[in-house]
Amino acid sequence: MTALADPEERGALEVDPAVLKKIVEYAADTASATRHRTRRVAGLGVGEAGPSAKVRSRGADELDVRLWLTLTYPGAVRAAVAEVRERIAADLLRMTGRRLGRFTVEVDALQADGPARTDTARVR
């Protein structure tokens, strides 16, 4: 059995930005306070959309993340965002060795936690 070369001589691991984005979106999607929202085109439901992220490298081991998501309503927005941040930071560090730097969240919608409301006519 041959001995491994020193880490500096073996090369480096590069993680594609698309993979980093998927890690962030999955971590946000699995948080308890996040929800999928209905995607609509011309007023018609065309499926669901989960959290969406934009990830930028900030040096060798730090990432800036901008995240768009839907949260449950009613609920504590700050607590939900803190949970999402912790989950993303832990997953990035565990899977890629990269740290979460700047973290920006835009809450697209608040969705009631319960049975779906049926659409009713607005004008009678």
Score class of each variant (00 low, 15 high):
Thr34Ile: 07
Leu63Ser: 04
Ala80Glu: 10
Ala53Ser: 09
Gly50Thr: 02
Leu92Val: 01
Leu110Thr: 02
Glu62Pro: 10
Ala53Gly: 09
Arg10Gly: 03
Arg124His: 13
Glu8Met: 05
Glu86Lys: 04
Ser32Pro: 07
Val19Cys: 10
Ile88Gln: 03
Gly50Phe: 01
Ile88Glu: 01
Thr34Gln: 01
Glu25Ala: 00
Thr120Pro: 09
Ala121Gly: 08
Trp68Met: 10
Tyr73Glu: 07
Gln111Arg: 13
Arg66Tyr: 07
Leu63His: 06
Leu100Gln: 00
Gly11Ile: 10
Pro17Met: 08
Arg98Gln: 12
Asp91Arg: 14
Val55Met: 10
Asp91Ser: 11
Ala121His: 13
Glu48Trp: 05
Arg98Glu: 11
Ala116Glu: 14
Arg10Lys: 12
Val19Thr: 12
Ala28Asn: 01
Val107Ala: 00
Arg37Ala: 07
Val81Ile: 12
Leu44Ser: 13
Gln111Trp: 06
Ile88Leu: 06
Val123Ala: 09
Thr70Arg: 01
Leu63Ala: 01
Arg37Val: 02
Glu25Phe: 00
Tyr73Trp: 13
Val55Gly: 03
Val105Thr: 13
Glu86Arg: 06
Leu67Asp: 05
Leu71Ala: 03
Glu8Phe: 03
Val15Glu: 04
Leu63Asn: 04
Val55Ala: 02
Val24Arg: 05
Met1Ala: 02
Arg35Asn: 02
Val46Met: 12
Gly114Arg: 07
Arg124Asp: 13
Arg117Trp: 07
Thr118Tyr: 15
Thr96Pro: 09
Arg87Gln: 09
Asp64Tyr: 05
Lys54Glu: 11
Asp119Tyr: 11
Arg99Leu: 09
Asp108Ser: 15
Ala27Thr: 04
Asp29Pro: 00
Ile88Pro: 00
Arg39His: 04
Pro17Asp: 13
Ala121Leu: 15
Gly43Lys: 14
Gly75Tyr: 03
Glu48Phe: 04
Leu69Asn: 00
Ala5Phe: 15
Ala82Ser: 11
Arg66Phe: 07
Ala31Trp: 04
Ala27Met: 08
Glu62Gly: 08
Glu25Cys: 00
Arg10Glu: 12
Met1Lys: 01
Arg122Met: 13
Ala89His: 04
Glu106Trp: 08
Ile23Val: 14
Arg122Ser: 15
Thr72Arg: 09
Arg39Ala: 06
Thr72Cys: 04
Asp108Gln: 15
Thr34Arg: 03
Ser57Asn: 02
Phe103Ala: 01
Asp64Ile: 03
Val105Lys: 11
Pro115Gln: 11
Ser32Cys: 09
Arg39Pro: 02
Ala42Gly: 06
Asp29Trp: 08
Gly50Leu: 03
Arg85Lys: 12
Leu110Asn: 06
